[in-house]
Simulated assay, not measured.
Amino acid sequence: MLYEGDFSPPDGRFVLVAARFNGFIVDQLVAGATDAFRRHGVSDDRIDLVRVPGAYEIPLVAQRLGASGTFAAVVCLGCVIRGDTDHYDHVAGAATSGIAQAALASGVPVVFGVLTCDTLEQAIHRAGAKAGNKGFEAAVCAVEMVNLLKKLPG
């Protein structure tokens, strides 16, 4: 038997965990995610937004929200842009592994929508300019994963 998620309107509440750091980029990701949810039948009253200081802080909040039993999925949105030091590598790596751990620990889809870019220009393109909106894509992924998990045994 083949199991696949679909894009039908999902049940439940959804939460966006969005970093304030690089907010001019992250705000575009939030707008894209909200638009995607609306287009897939999720009304605004079923979408919550939680702001955290930066991408590094996303995993802890995502795990708490995922484990709360309140949300069908958690969408993590942030933007880390490479600088002249190793700080980028540490923050991007911690956010990536922490978000994955949050999903595994909570059993709820915790979707990675954190941009990890070499330049500000790349971030702008991925937040809606030329390369689509990765926040929109993350919300669509959440819809698909919620619908897939409902179909799986166990």
Rank of each mutant, 00 (worst) to 15 (best):
67 A>N: 11
103 A>V: 00
6 D>S: 14
53 P>K: 11
109 P>K: 07
100 A>M: 15
44 D>S: 13
100 A>S: 12
82 R>L: 15
24 F>P: 00
13 R>A: 03
90 H>E: 02
50 V>R: 11
24 F>E: 14
79 C>D: 08
42 V>D: 05
66 G>F: 00
121 E>A: 11
99 I>P: 04
8 S>M: 04
55 A>T: 06
34 T>V: 13
11 D>N: 09
126 R>G: 05
29 L>E: 07
92 A>Y: 01
55 A>I: 03
55 A>N: 08
111 V>F: 14
88 Y>P: 07
76 C>T: 03
16 L>P: 06
9 P>C: 10
46 R>H: 12
126 R>K: 14
26 V>F: 04
121 E>G: 00
108 V>C: 09
67 A>V: 06
41 G>Y: 13
133 N>C: 08
73 A>Y: 02
92 A>F: 04
34 T>G: 06
6 D>E: 07
134 K>Y: 11
108 V>H: 07
78 G>Y: 01
12 G>I: 12
24 F>R: 10
128 G>L: 07
106 S>N: 09
81 I>P: 05
59 P>V: 05
67 A>Q: 15
59 P>I: 06
51 R>P: 03
53 P>T: 03
87 H>P: 10
43 S>E: 13
75 V>I: 15
11 D>I: 00
64 R>I: 13
72 A>G: 03
23 G>E: 10
116 T>L: 05
117 C>I: 12
118 D>M: 11
135 G>Q: 11
34 T>H: 14
49 L>P: 01
51 R>E: 11
34 T>N: 14
103 A>Y: 06
123 A>N: 13
138 A>Q: 06
135 G>T: 06
79 C>F: 02
56 Y>A: 04
114 V>R: 04
13 R>G: 00
110 V>K: 08
106 S>T: 09
136 F>D: 13
73 A>C: 10
147 N>R: 12
74 V>R: 04
136 F>W: 15
125 H>K: 12
82 R>T: 05
80 V>M: 07
79 C>Q: 07
52 V>R: 03
55 A>C: 01
100 A>W: 02
71 F>Y: 15
88 Y>M: 12
137 E>H: 08
18 A>D: 02
30 V>Q: 03
70 T>N: 05
137 E>G: 11
25 I>M: 14
142 A>K: 06
102 A>H: 07
16 L>I: 14
134 K>M: 08
35 D>R: 15
128 G>K: 11
67 A>I: 07
35 D>C: 00
124 I>A: 05
9 P>E: 05
16 L>W: 00
53 P>Q: 09
19 A>E: 10
131 A>T: 01
47 I>A: 01
136 F>P: 00
113 G>S: 03
127 A>T: 04
85 T>D: 09
118 D>G: 15
43 S>Q: 10
54 G>A: 14
137 E>V: 04
24 F>L: 09
107 G>D: 08
10 P>S: 11
15 V>Y: 01
133 N>V: 04
41 G>K: 07
117 C>W: 10
32 G>L: 07
129 A>F: 09
62 A>P: 00
118 D>V: 02
110 V>P: 09
30 V>S: 08
70 T>F: 01
96 T>S: 12
137 E>C: 01
129 A>P: 01
74 V>L: 04
44 D>R: 15
117 C>T: 15
58 I>E: 04
37 F>H: 09
83 G>A: 09
16 L>A: 01
86 D>P: 02
40 H>L: 14
12 G>T: 05
91 V>H: 07
25 I>C: 10
39 R>Y: 02
7 F>T: 13
